[in-house]
């Protein structure tokens, strides 16, 4: 008898689920088409992708390979679709090899160093430059121990010191930033954190 009792519970639950699912899915369809965002993604990546295992390097995989991996991890970790899209955008933006063209040297996106820091760098480096997540060094130490040219090169091309569990992605993971932008943001962090 408990057999039939469970079956009834099971079928009832399935029905209830179906009723919840369909309105929920159409509701979500309206809200879910927000495209992935690189700077939100860098924060979500740093917050979520070290919960079960060590952070994997964005440069480990090609753009198309990250897609099924992030899908797999979205299901494994119980992330929302938006979190997954943001993280995917970040990973796909952070695995590129930057091309330095002569013409973009002086150009900027028209953002101040502060704006760039708050959009792209703050997720990892924190508002105080001391690091928002494990694996991020205090910027103060680095700014005091390295030359401007070296730092600029590392911001532009990405950097991982030997033994560091995490890499600084090229241009902080935002391929749209020009060398001019990077100089502005370096000036800003030198003023703020040095």
């Amino acid at each position: 008898m408990s057999n039939s009792r469970y079956k009834i519970v099971f079928y009832a639950l399935s029905l209830v689920t179906a009723f919840i699912l369909f309105p929920a899915s159409s509701y979500a369809a309206d809200k879910s088409n927000k495209a992935g965002d690189v700077s939100r993604g860098s924060r979500e990546w740093a917050n979520n992708c070290n919960r079960c295992h060590n952070l994997r390097d964005p440069k480990e995989f090609r753009d198309d390979m990250w897609e099924p991996i992030v899908m797999h991890m979205r299901v494994t970790a119980g992330l929302t679709g938006q979190q997954a899209r943001d993280i995917l955008a970040f990973l796909q933006a952070s695995n590129f090899t930057p091309v330095t063209t002569g013409t973009s040297r002086g150009a900027t996106l028209g953002l101040t160093g502060e704006q760039i820091f708050k959009q792209t760098c703050i997720a990892c480096h924190g508002a105080d430059g001391k690091g928002a997540i494990p694996g991020i060094p205090d910027l103060k130490e680095r700014l005091n121990s390295k030359s401007e040219g070296v730092l600029l090169g590392h911001i532009e091309n990405g950097f991982q010191s030997p033994g560091s569990p995490m890499a600084m992605p090229p241009k902080g993971g935002n391929p749209n930033l020009t060398s001019g932008d990077l100089r502005n943001v370096l000036e800003y962090i030198e003023e703020e954190f040095k």
Partner: peptide
């Protein structure tokens, strides 16, 4: 086989 129905349900 996973069906990612929407942003919140798989």
């Amino acid at each position: 086989i996973d069906w990612l129905v929407n942003d919140y349900i798989t």
